[in-house]
Amino acid sequence: NQASVVANQLIPINTALTLVMMRSEVVTPVGIPAEDIPRLVSMQVNRAVPLGTTLMPDMVRGYA
Rank of each mutant, 00 (worst) to 15 (best):
N1R: 03
N1M: 15
N1Y: 14
N1C: 06
N1L: 10
N1E: 15
N1H: 06
N1P: 15
N1S: 15
N1T: 15
N1D: 15
Q2T: 09
Q2N: 12
Q2Y: 09
Q2G: 15
Q2V: 12
Q2F: 10
Q2H: 08
Q2E: 15
A3L: 14
A3P: 07
A3W: 05
A3M: 11
A3D: 12
S4V: 02
S4P: 00
S4Y: 04
V5M: 02
V5T: 07
V5S: 03
V5K: 01
V6F: 02
V6Y: 02
V6D: 01
A7Y: 00
A7L: 03
A7R: 00
A7V: 13
A7I: 07
A7F: 01
A7E: 01
N8A: 08
N8C: 05
N8S: 15
N8K: 10
N8H: 13
N8Y: 04
N8T: 15
N8V: 08
Q9E: 11
Q9S: 10
Q9A: 13
Q9T: 15
Q9P: 02
Q9K: 08
Q9R: 11
Q9I: 10
Q9M: 06
Q9D: 12
Q9V: 10
L10N: 13
L10W: 08
L10I: 10
L10M: 11
L10S: 15
I11D: 00
I11P: 01
I11S: 01
I11V: 11
P12N: 13
P12C: 05
P12H: 07
P12T: 09
P12Y: 06
P12E: 07
P12A: 09
P12R: 11
I13P: 10
I13S: 14
I13V: 11
N14M: 09
N14Q: 07
N14P: 00
N14A: 06
N14G: 10
N14L: 11
N14E: 15
T15V: 10
T15G: 09
T15L: 07
T15E: 07
T15R: 06
A16H: 14
A16G: 07
A16P: 12
A16D: 10
A16F: 14
A16K: 06
A16S: 15
A16V: 13
A16R: 06
A16I: 09
L17Y: 00
L17Q: 00
L17D: 02
L17F: 02
L17M: 08
L17K: 00
L17C: 02
L17W: 00
L17E: 02
T18N: 08
T18S: 10
T18R: 08
T18W: 03
T18D: 12
T18Y: 03
T18V: 11
L19P: 12
L19K: 10
L19G: 11
L19M: 15
L19F: 10
L19V: 07
V20I: 11
V20Q: 11
V20G: 12
V20D: 13
V20K: 12
V20T: 14
V20S: 13
V20W: 13
V20E: 14
V20R: 09
V20F: 11
M21W: 02
M21L: 07
M21C: 03
M21G: 03
M21S: 06
M21D: 06
M21I: 03
M22W: 01
M22G: 01
M22C: 03
M22V: 13
M22R: 00
R23F: 05
R23K: 10
R23Y: 05
S24I: 13
S24H: 10
S24K: 04
S24N: 09
S24G: 14
S24T: 13
S24D: 12
S24P: 12
S24A: 15
S24Q: 11
S24Y: 08
E25W: 04
E25A: 08
E25R: 03
E25F: 04
E25M: 04
V26G: 09
V26F: 09
V26I: 14
V26Y: 11
V26W: 06
V26Q: 14
V26C: 06
V26T: 12
V26P: 15
V27H: 05
V27F: 02
V27E: 02
T28V: 09
T28E: 15
T28N: 11
T28L: 05
T28M: 05
T28W: 04
P29A: 05
P29M: 07
P29G: 04
P29F: 05
P29W: 03
V30E: 15
V30D: 15
V30S: 11
V30W: 06
G31L: 02
G31A: 04
G31Y: 02
G31I: 01
G31N: 00
G31W: 02
G31D: 00
G31R: 02
I32D: 00
I32W: 02
I32P: 00
I32T: 02
I32E: 00
P33N: 12
P33H: 11
P33D: 07
P33E: 04
P33W: 13
A34R: 04
A34T: 09
A34S: 15
A34E: 14
A34C: 15
A34Q: 11
A34M: 12
E35K: 06
E35R: 04
E35I: 08
E35L: 05
E35Q: 09
E35V: 08
D36Y: 12
D36L: 08
D36M: 07
D36S: 11
D36A: 07
I37E: 03
I37T: 09
I37N: 00
I37H: 03
I37C: 04
I37Q: 04
I37W: 03
P38R: 06
P38W: 11
P38D: 11
P38M: 11
P38N: 11
R39C: 08
R39W: 08
R39Y: 11
L40E: 00
L40Q: 00
L40M: 09
L40G: 00
L40T: 01
L40P: 00
L40K: 00
V41Y: 04
V41T: 08
V41I: 11
V41S: 04
V41K: 07
S42A: 15
S42P: 02
S42W: 11
S42E: 06
S42M: 12
S42H: 10
S42L: 13
M43D: 03
M43H: 13
M43S: 06
M43A: 11
M43F: 10
M43L: 09
Q44C: 15
Q44D: 04
Q44M: 10
Q44W: 05
Q44E: 09
V45A: 11
V45W: 00
V45Q: 01
V45K: 00
V45M: 07
V45L: 08
N46V: 15
N46R: 09
N46F: 05
N46Y: 12
N46H: 06
N46C: 07
R47H: 12
R47D: 08
R47W: 11
R47L: 12
R47T: 14
R47Y: 13
R47N: 15
A48I: 14
A48W: 06
A48R: 06
A48S: 15
A48N: 10
A48E: 13
A48L: 10
V49G: 01
V49A: 05
V49T: 08
V49I: 13
V49H: 02
V49F: 02
P50I: 11
P50V: 11
P50D: 13
P50C: 14
P50G: 12
P50A: 13
P50E: 15
P50M: 14
L51I: 10
L51M: 15
L51D: 14
L51R: 05
L51G: 12
L51V: 12
L51N: 06
L51C: 03
G52V: 02
G52K: 04
G52H: 10
G52E: 07
G52A: 10
G52M: 14
T53K: 09
T53A: 13
T53I: 12
T53D: 14
T53F: 10
T54P: 07
T54K: 04
T54S: 06
T54Y: 02
T54R: 03
T54L: 04
L55M: 15
L55R: 00
L55T: 01
L55H: 00
M56Y: 07
M56H: 11
M56I: 07
M56S: 14
M56Q: 11
M56T: 15
M56P: 01
P57R: 05
P57E: 08
P57D: 09
P57K: 11
P57T: 04
P57Q: 07
D58E: 08
D58S: 11
D58T: 10
D58A: 12
D58W: 06
D58L: 14
D58R: 04
M59D: 14
M59V: 05
M59R: 03
M59C: 05
M59F: 15
M59W: 07
M59T: 05
M59E: 03
V60N: 02
V60G: 00
V60W: 02
V60H: 01
V60T: 02
V60S: 01
V60E: 02
V60D: 02
V60K: 02
V60Y: 01
R61G: 15
R61I: 13
R61K: 13
R61W: 11
R61L: 12
R61M: 13
G62T: 03
G62E: 12
G62M: 07
G62P: 05
G62W: 05
Y63M: 06
Y63N: 04
Y63D: 04
A64C: 07
A64M: 14
A64F: 03
A64V: 10
